[in-house]
Amino acid sequence: MRASRTAVITGGMSGLGAAAAARLVKDGLKVITLDLADRADLRVDVTDAAAVRAAAARLGPVDILVNAAGVVGPYLPLWQIPLDAWENTFAVNVHGTFNACKAFVPAMRERGWGRIINVASIAGKVGNPNMSAYSAASAALIALTKSLGKELATSGVLANAVAPTLVQAPSNAATAPEAFAHASDRTPTRRLSQPEEIAEFIAWLASDKVNHTTGAIYDIGGAPVTY
């Protein structure tokens, strides 16, 4: 991979996003983190479309976009979820990804090369109980990726997504113990995924080794779904 390529990672200061940033640096990429954390390269709220557009204009050409910004949302039965908690889960996970893609994809299309990796969740396929907001938002990300992959299929820009099981990361610090137990009980390997394991797969999807895969969703993490 050419060292001149640039990757932008939303939510790049913690958890899976930070692991992806560290892994892509090892491949010689220039990595720019977009996050609300103080030490981010650019402090950007991905739910603010104007702020994301401004960041894209400031950065110029970007080759790789990893949409890792996300929140788990409330751990409650659907009928008990406050509307603002539901809306915030979609605002960060879905609207944030939409905003970033809308801001960075056009220039990728113009240059004829790009890689987009969206971070969804296996919850979007199986629907975790008491996590309907997160499951629904992840399902939306999965459908978004499939559509975007088809729209970009002849452009040289590839859009794929990873759908991990529950990841052992700081973003899950507030996740209810019952959610961890549910995930572990239904994962044949009987353990949670580590951010570095997901980052390895993201690095592969961001590389020149992948050139004919788009609109695909990759389940990662101990064979959580069997067919």
Rank of each mutant, 00 (worst) to 15 (best):
143 A>W: 02
120 A>C: 08
48 D>G: 04
217 I>G: 09
104 F>R: 03
145 T>N: 07
21 A>C: 12
216 A>D: 14
68 A>F: 01
116 I>K: 02
186 R>D: 07
125 K>N: 13
1 M>G: 15
29 L>M: 12
170 P>I: 09
206 A>D: 07
209 K>N: 15
140 A>I: 07
160 N>R: 06
188 P>G: 12
153 A>P: 00
45 D>F: 04
25 V>M: 06
81 I>V: 15
223 A>K: 13
201 F>P: 00
64 I>W: 00
196 E>C: 03
135 S>W: 02
152 L>G: 12
77 P>F: 05
23 R>C: 11
30 K>W: 02
41 D>S: 11
101 C>F: 00
118 N>K: 05
43 R>C: 11
95 H>M: 08
7 A>P: 10
106 P>Y: 11
157 V>G: 06
24 L>Q: 08
160 N>S: 11
115 R>H: 12
173 A>P: 08
45 D>R: 03
123 A>F: 08
104 F>Y: 08
217 I>H: 09
104 F>L: 09
46 V>H: 00
66 V>K: 00
210 V>I: 15
98 F>D: 00
7 A>V: 12
59 L>E: 08
102 K>G: 01
118 N>V: 13
99 N>G: 04
182 H>M: 13
68 A>V: 05
158 L>I: 09
22 A>Y: 00
163 A>K: 00
152 L>M: 13
200 E>G: 13
76 L>I: 08
206 A>L: 05
134 Y>F: 14
85 A>C: 05
68 A>L: 02
172 N>H: 09
213 T>M: 15
118 N>Y: 06
111 R>G: 12
64 I>P: 07
41 D>F: 01
5 R>L: 14
9 I>E: 03
25 V>I: 10
86 W>R: 13
48 D>M: 01
113 W>K: 11
90 F>W: 05
154 T>F: 10
114 G>M: 03
76 L>A: 15
39 R>V: 12
29 L>Y: 14
111 R>S: 15
212 H>W: 14
26 K>G: 10
94 V>Q: 01
19 A>S: 13
79 W>K: 11
142 I>F: 05
67 N>K: 00
